[in-house]
Design a protein around this nucleic acid. Structure first.
Lengths: 274, 274
DNA sequence: ATTTTTCTTATGTTCGAAATTTTTGTACAA
DNA sequence: TTGTACAAAAATTTCGAACATAAGAAAAAT
């Protein structure tokens, strides 16, 4: 059954790391469920299209229906899971079209945000950009696509860098939307890179591009920084798009059993007269 | 207490209006709760900052905690309500800064979307733009700020017009974000107009501006259409900003009175400390 | 043989209560 | 008067069961 409510501790899942302010523990099971489900969707442990049934989720995560439902509802609002009333949740499907749309819109929003941040950012903004760039550069993307933990650490730093780039007062909505799109893009990136040889994954020199963007930004060279940023996005997109076909849409082994091998032979015509 | 689960009908709240495909009834209580809460927040029936406690919500809407919680969770993702773990929900506060941010970002996203739609839109897009403009123009903004139903009808058509303007394949994320911002802006607009004399509310000739935008759009005059659109947004913003101070942040009278007139006065003892 | 109907099973939804946390109120001490 | 400790009250969160719907299978009918 579900984890008893009695012990509300040990939810963090990792060492609190005394010095760093990161990794706050979840306050509620709902937040914990959100964290775990999001992690498993972004990593591909839960494959696109996979039906998310409460019975299985309760077993998998040792949580009750209520917190799981809350987490799924939140993930649905970020379009990481799809939802249809009375018919439940599923991991959101992926498509080449959406990959393009997400990348392009994220690029558009980030580019405009960067221009604003360069115009209005203060010394703290500069410091945050440089600091997060440094942390990111010191954390190479792990070669093994199986090393989930290391990848997730890199992704966290990567997202933080992009956030800091555009962070400035009065941009909370833009930051919010960019954060959602960043998550979306992460799922595509990881799904595609997972299918590739380890060396190929580091072929593009994203580190160098990040560095150039950050330097142009703190030097207040708006046009150059934005141009580098847009090129960064389009380069990423072209690279992933070229590899998109390799995606095997089968469910990963670690995940739940793929029950979808039934050939749907029925087209129910409902003559419903309320 | 809460409405019994037995009868799953009569949720629509309005006549299905045989000819029109609008107004689908809610399939679940969760959707119903979302519809009602959203309506009451956008209209100001629930004032910004108001604490949303389950006990009161259950009484007010005659729904159980589970569907209410689901609705609040969704509204929180759209930032119409704020949420803090273990401390509950509240109607999101408003601020002049956010009004500007919402308006400007909505303008930015819509402008770029309009340019794309003009470049890629087909005859159906044109037809939808013209049709929704027509419907909107035939529905004048009601003079009385108390006529919630008429206002909500106008708002629906207004949102549909803005949606159709940028609707094109491959824009679902943009449409989604614009829809969220449109809701946000609606709340500000209604909160401010509510404080004004009836005549002043129609001072700006938004109808005319909508018409000009739509005409330029279907004539494929990108630059002109986008310029008109941006001016439309900045005009609206300036107008509302000038009136922002009139906002009385006190809770509206309609506040938390139980609108359900069921005679069950078993415990009418409601601690009205607000 | 195909469609429709009916029944059974599986799954999502919602309720009422229990468990946990936060807030409030009060007594006591510095 | 201010601050702290602690008990009581209120609110949120979560569970387990009951309810309602959807999906699937079997039976009946055209």
């Amino acid at each position: 059954m579900a984890r008893q409510q009695t012990k509300r501790n040990d939810l963090s899942g990792g060492a609190p790391a005394s010095g760093s302010p990161e990794r706050e523990a979840s306050k509620t099971f709902g937040e914990e469920a959100y964290r775990l489900l999001r992690r498993d969707i972004l990593s591909g442990r839960l494959a696109p299209g996979h039906k998310l049934q409460f019975r299985q989720l309760v077993q998998r995560y040792d949580l009750g229906i209520a917190p799981l439902r809350e987490a799924l509802s939140k993930l649905a609002s970020e379009r990481l899971v799809s939802f249809e009333g009375q018919r439940g949740f599923a991991v959101a499907p992926i498509s080449r079209e959406e990959l393009h749309e997400v990348s392009n819109l994220w690029s558009e929003l980030t580019a405009a945000g960067l221009r604003i941040a360069i115009a209005k950012g203060d010394a703290d903004w500069e410091a945050d950009v440089i600091a997060s760039l440094h942390r990111l550069s010191r954390t190479p993307l792990p070669a093994s696509p199986e090393d989930y933990e290391a990848i997730e650490n890199w992704e966290r730093l990567h997202a933080q860098f992009h956030t800091n780039l555009i962070a400035c007062p009065g941009s909370s909505w833009r930051e919010h939307f960019c954060s959602v799109l960043c998550d979306q893009f992460e799922r595509y990136r990881r799904a595609i890179l997972m299918q590739m040889a380890t060396s190929a994954a580091t072929a593009r020199q994203v580190d160098k591009e990040h560095k150039q963007i950050a330097e142009a930004a703190v030097k207040r060279e708006s046009d150059r920084a934005v141009q580098l940023l847009v090129d960064h996005f389009s380069g990423n997109l072209a690279y992933l798009d070229a590899q998109y076909d390799r995606l095997s849409l089968q469910a990963h082994g670690a995940g739940l059993q793929p029950k979808v091998r039934t050939a749907s032979k029925t087209k129910s015509k409902v003559a419903e007269t309320a």
